[in-house]
């Protein structure tokens, strides 16, 4: 791709690839940029508002009308109040934090391992049932867990898993989207890598862990993002009734239901919860994009 542009594309930071200049009018570009600015502002506003509200001292929280964009004297008072409220909770607050971290980490790890193991033969081999199996996986992308939740409850209670971590973890291991993305990405890994290992006499298990898994790192980072997004933000579950097993979003939701009186604390809690998946996404972003490039459905 030639990057030799002319005019303002030579300014540092404005390196448009040359190809992008074909068929683009300046007026059109301006419209697109205005549109993106407008929608970007709408998208950013609630998140920005959460950030600044969390930093507002009490007197600024009660300003009328509230200041949407700025905070004059930022303070960490709301965070301090949040921790104070946490320490008063019936179940030690660290327990909610532990539950959320444990469920997210263990569920995500299981999901990555189970889906990549299952994706390997589906992507690299042909055997009786392989095509119909993949068809079923694509089909299962078409409905959500709402459909299965009632019978799943009965299965859980039959297994004695109600009010245990298993009820939250095990179903998360077999997320069809994870398997689907993993398989599509593995298709793009050249077979020659595995062939060379076979010639050296490596068994299937070794081929998978040592040769294939490092190659599909972008795919597992992507599965991690999608998996943790659901698990970390999970506020309630139909399978959990014991207070000791409930999660951080649930606990924070309980603290901040008091409306405007606790707006600052609520915003602080929101920021603390949202910062985790967003930072993981920033870290994994380029890998996610690489993986999603192979996500299409090809006949």
């Amino acid at each position: 791709m030639s990057r030799k542009g002319i005019g303002f594309s030579q300014l540092p930071g404005l390196q448009f690839p040359a190809r992008r200049r074909i068929n683009r009018s300046r007026a059109g570009n301006m419209l697109v940029i205005l549109f993106l600015l407008f929608c970007g502002t709408f998208t950013a506003l609630p998140m920005w508002f959460a950030l600044i509200t969390a930093l507002k001292p009490l007197n600024e929280l009660w300003l009328y009308p509230p200041n949407l964009l700025f905070v004059r004297q930022p303070s960490l008072r709301n965070y301090a109040d949040l921790f104070l409220l946490m320490s008063e909770s019936w179940v030690p607050f660290t327990r909610y934090v532990f539950n959320s971290i444990f469920i997210t980490v263990a569920g995500t790890a299981g999901n990555v391992i189970f889906s990549s193991m299952c994706a390997y033969p589906l992507a690299k081999k042909r055997f009786p049932g392989s095509r119909i199996y993949f068809r079923i996986i694509v089909f299962s992308l078409m409905f959500t867990q709402t459909v299965t939740s009632l019978p799943a409850y009965q299965i859980m209670s039959g297994l004695g898993w109600i009010d245990t971590y298993f009820a939250l973890l095990v179903p998360a291991f077999a997320m069809p989207l994870g398997l689907y993305l993993m398989r599509q990405f593995m298709l793009s890994i050249p077979d020659s890598i595995l062939e060379s290992g076979r010639i050296d006499g490596a068994g299937e298990w070794k081929l998978f862990w040592i040769l294939l898994m490092p190659q599909v790192k972008p795919a597992w980072l992507t599965v991690i993002i999608f998996s943790m997004q659901g698990l970390w933000n999970m506020a309630s579950s139909n399978y959990i009734y014991r207070e000791e097993l409930k999660t951080l979003p649930y606990a924070l939701g309980q603290i901040v239901t008091a409306g405007f009186a606790r707006a600052g604390v609520g915003a602080a809690a929101t920021v603390l919860v949202m910062i985790v998946p967003i930072s993981v996404f920033i870290f994994a972003q380029s890998n996610v994009v690489v993986t999603m490039a192979s996500s299409g459905i090809k006949e």
């Binding site: 570009n29 998208t43 609630p46 998140m47 508002f49 609520g266 998946p277 967003i278 972003q285 380029s286």
Partner: peptide
């Protein structure tokens, strides 16, 4: 069509709502 750095930032910005759980803020709005 935008330069890579701006593209990465806007991708993050537009995707962030599905990562963030900020219904408390919408309730304030």
């Amino acid at each position: 069509e935008l330069p890579p750095k701006i593209r990465a930032f806007l991708t993050l910005l537009f995707y962030a709502p599905s990562l963030a759980n900020i219904y408390i803020i919408w309730q304030l709005f």
